[in-house]
């Protein structure tokens, strides 16, 4: 019991000691904002078209109205919502990460998801969940009293870990579902995918025509998705795992025409990077730059 208590205490220091990976976390946060800015700009004309014909059913309760105020606005004036949204994102991007900015960021992504429900895919829900966990990931305003400082650090580190767990869950659930499915285990899933006219890229040559390769593709997907949740925490396998993940999502982007999902998942990988990774990149670049 005492050993468990001591172990918990030492693990607990992870949360109370300091803000974990501040540089890497700040980069993750900023890239997530850039992704949202890109997404918002790209879907703006589409949303304008959708909102010309479609009305969003919104809640009648006051908390519901407050939470979905952006969607209420978009129901009547879609351009005003997107205009304000883009402007706010630019402000969030160029200011230091703070709680108010994070709250506004979550508010925007959540309303964007509701507005774009008719044209949304998995990427929108991943985005607003990451932005939800990101709310406590802020070091500003600086809290002066000691107890407040500790609470700020704990919330920051917890939120960072919850972001990582959220991403790991996505793979684990997908992998588990595929493992349970005979269609995936037998490789027939890729034969089905090849015939999905509204998803499968017709420009590509028929890559899922071979039964043998379909089984290989199927089991590679299952193994990658199931192992990600365990291996991404391992110091020596973390980076290769993320690299494989990037290739996996780029493949899905091209073959299944899912650019949004690929981009949000690759962006989410930044939450697994450490400050030391960026230091290594920096020194690698410095070594290759001609010395003056």
């Amino acid at each position: 019991m005492r050993r468990l208590k001591n172990y918990s205490k030492s693990v607990g220091y992870y949360f109370t000691d300091d803000f974990q990976e501040p540089t890497a976390t700040r980069i993750f946060h900023k890239v997530l904002v850039v992704y949202t800015l890109l997404r918002m700009t790209l879907v703006w004309p589409l949303s304008r078209m959708v909102m010309s014909y479609h009305s969003i059913s919104l809640p009648k309760s006051l908390p519901g109205k407050l939470l979905l105020g952006g969607a209420f606005l978009a129901n009547q004036h879609v351009d005003v919502f997107f205009g304000i949204g883009v402007l706010l994102l630019v402000v969030i991007l160029f200011t230091n990460v703070n709680y108010i900015g994070n709250l506004v960021f979550f508010y925007l992504t959540f309303n964007l998801y509701v507005i774009n429900l008719p044209i949304a895919d998995g990427s929108d829900v991943v985005l607003f969940m990451l932005s939800l966990w990101c709310i406590p990931i802020a070091t500003l305003p600086v809290i002066s009293n000691e107890r407040g400082k500790v609470i700020q650090k704990v919330l920051y580190n917890l939120a960072l870990l919850f972001c990582q767990i959220q991403v790991a869950y996505i793979y684990f659930i997908s992998g588990l579902d595929k493992l349970m499915s005979d269609t995936w285990r037998s490789g027939v899933a890729f034969d089905y995918i090849r015939h999905l006219e509204v998803l499968y890229n017709p420009v590509l040559p028929p890559i899922f025509a071979s039964e043998f390769w379909n089984i290989i593709f199927s089991w590679s997907t299952i193994l990658f998705e199931l192992s990600f949740v365990f291996l991404v925490w391992n110091r020596s396998i973390r980076l290769p795992m993320l690299l494989i993940g990037c290739i996996f999502h780029l493949f899905i982007w091209i073959v299944l025409s899912l650019p949004d999902f690929a981009l949000i998942m690759i962006t989410s990988y930044l939450v697994f990077l450490k400050d030391s990774d960026y230091d290594r990149i920096k020194s690698w670049v410095k070594r290759r730059l001609p010395s003056r």
């Binding site: 959220q166 269609t183 899933a189 999905l196 006219e197």
Partner: peptide, 19 residues
């Protein structure tokens, strides 16, 4: 619905395509 996101490529999703 929100924490355990997915699975995104379920059997039903890949077996049919709407037109």
């Amino acid at each position: 619905q929100l924490v355990l996101l997915g699975p995104f490529f379920t059997e039903s999703r890949i077996k049919t395509s709407p037109h």
